Simulated assay, not measured.
Amino acid sequence: MKTIIALLACMLFASMASADDDPLQAIPARLKLLFETPDKPLDIAPVVVEADWAIAGWRQDGRGGRALLKKTHHGWSIYLSSGDSLKDAGTLEKIGLSANDATELAAKLKDAEAGLDPSALALFSSFEGTVMMMNEASNGAGGGHEGHAQ
């Protein structure tokens, strides 16, 4: 019995580690943890990654947008939320990505969104402006994103 429990524990830890290592699983899980509620499911797709940066499209309760994420030693953190501006390599470079990472990320996003339903693209585009998100370095000071899922 102890052997079975030990094997199950190892399998659980291995699956958790692999989910944390795979940004295509870790990013949606992180966003859902932060913003999903039982009555307002959060759809995360597509997710594209280049180096330590990622863009994830999101839809929830008739709204949508794109999130720019950065990988830190704490995992993936939301850097900002916006709409169509995150499709532009020049904008990504101004935000702080290297020219190469910005170009690659914008190209990956274009490819990933090419096959999406026009209604999903319209929701991504509907996000007005840019909302900077707080990270762990801010010591939790006034993040202002708690009401997103309300």
Rank of each mutant, 00 (worst) to 15 (best):
M1C: 03
M1N: 10
M1P: 11
K2Q: 09
T3I: 14
T3M: 12
I4Y: 11
A6G: 05
C10R: 13
C10P: 02
M11Q: 11
L12G: 04
F13V: 12
A17C: 00
S18N: 01
S18Q: 10
A19T: 01
D20C: 05
D22K: 05
P23S: 06
L24E: 00
A26W: 00
I27E: 05
I27S: 03
P28F: 07
P28N: 06
P28G: 07
A29W: 07
A29R: 13
A29N: 05
A29G: 08
L31F: 01
K32F: 00
F35G: 03
F35Q: 08
F35A: 11
E36V: 07
E36N: 07
T37C: 01
P38M: 09
P41Y: 10
L42P: 15
I44Y: 09
A45E: 15
A45C: 13
V48F: 01
V49T: 03
E50G: 02
A51L: 00
A51N: 15
D52G: 00
W53P: 03
A54Q: 08
A54I: 06
I55L: 09
I55P: 08
G57P: 09
G57F: 02
G57I: 01
W58S: 04
Q60H: 13
Q60D: 14
G62D: 10
R63Y: 13
R63P: 02
G65N: 12
R66T: 10
A67L: 01
K71P: 00
T72S: 10
T72P: 09
T72H: 02
T72G: 04
H73P: 06
H74D: 10
G75W: 00
W76R: 01
W76I: 02
S77M: 06
I78W: 00
Y79F: 14
L80T: 04
L80Q: 08
S81K: 12
S81N: 07
S81Y: 11
S82Q: 02
G83F: 07
S85G: 04
S85D: 10
L86H: 10
K87R: 14
D88K: 13
D88T: 03
A89L: 01
G90C: 04
G90R: 04
L92M: 08
E93F: 03
K94C: 06
I95P: 07
L97V: 00
L97Y: 10
S98L: 03
A99T: 12
N100A: 15
N100I: 14
A102R: 12
T103R: 01
L105S: 06
L105F: 08
L105M: 10
A107I: 06
K108T: 04
D111I: 05
D111A: 14
A112P: 06
A112T: 04
A112L: 08
A112W: 08
A112I: 04
A114S: 15
G115N: 13
G115W: 03
L116K: 09
D117S: 12
P118D: 14
A120V: 10
A122L: 10
L123G: 05
S125I: 01
S125L: 02
S126E: 05
E128R: 14
E128G: 02
G129A: 08
G129M: 05
T130P: 04
T130L: 07
M132G: 11
M132W: 13
M134Q: 14
M134T: 15
N135D: 15
N135R: 14
N135H: 15
N135E: 12
E136A: 14
A137F: 06
A137M: 13
S138D: 15
N139G: 07
G140I: 08
G142V: 08
G143Q: 12
G147S: 13
H148F: 15
H148S: 04
Q150P: 15
